[in-house]
Nucleic acid binder design. Structure first.
Lengths: 137, 137
DNA sequence: GGTTGACCTGGAGTGCACTCCAGCTCCTAC
DNA sequence: GTAGGAGCTGGAGTGCACTCCAGGTCAACC
């Protein structure tokens, strides 16, 4: 199967402009072209785009995705380095989830328990600690 | 207790420049000044800064924090609206965590199970579905 | 054969959230 | 009394990740 840029955009969830932008900065290899000079994406291309959107969703900066893409171009010899990058990225995603979860706990607490106006906007470090303890229990 | 801008920065985790920037854009009320015209933050100010950093961590845009700050300035009459905002923000944080978790599942799967080079970078929608199912089980 | 619509290119513009800078004023310590 | 350091102001600059635009090509349909 091949896909026009519009189809690739729809399937990957990226915009047409973003697809061209990613190509320009070396995040995706230039896809094949049809007889009229238009981009023609393969299933492999789509797979890579899917991977990219997933990494982007988890907050991997473009700079790092580009580094990964460059390693990938150099083939199997770089598999270890890439694996290492995924390891490190996994750790950062886990950290991010934990961080969000802890802020969510505070938010929950604020919504559920704090009624007094003055307190509501001024929860202090001690309060936050109590919340954390309460949430952990 | 009062705090210099450097102390407020250290305690809130924001930079001195960011503190002044937040004041400029109306995210924090101008704090008191000492005899020499320097900013002097109160515990209440610090509490508000703590709240802001927490909302920022969870991805609330400055525009929304500013809206919240404006409502807060108008007092108790706006408590309902503010509560509503926290509700909505909570929902978006939950969604974000779920989204990150689902990408993390894919990442875990890739790290743990995919060894074949060609597959590794080209996991397709069907594969992702299998991962999701496997992760849910 | 003319119009429409998708796509092309190089380059400029946008929005967000800071971050940095020059040139100044205070206060403190020597 | 002067040197150093923290802080002040208004404004300019930065990095990121797009997003938009003008002016053009190409294929298909009426």
């Amino acid at each position: 199967m091949t896909y026009s840029i519009a189809q690739a955009a729809e399937r990957s969830g990226l915009s047409i402009d973003t697809l061209r932008y990613y190509e320009r900065i070396g995040l995706v290899d230039p896809p094949a072209r049809d007889s009229g000079g238009r981009r023609s994406y393969s299933d492999d291309d789509l797979g890579w785009l899917t991977f990219l959107t997933r990494m982007r969703t988890t907050g991997m900066p473009i700079r790092m995705m580009r580094e990964y893409a460059q390693l990938r171009r150099r083939g199997a010899a770089t598999a270890g380095r890439r694996r290492q990058m995924l390891f490190e990225h996994r750790a950062s995603v886990r950290e991010r989830i934990a961080e969000l979860q802890s802020c969510l706990d505070v938010l929950e607490y604020k919504i559920a328990h704090v009624r007094h106006e003055a307190l509501n906007d001024r929860m202090e470090v001690q309060d936050l600690h109590r919340v954390a303890v309460a949430a952990a229990a």
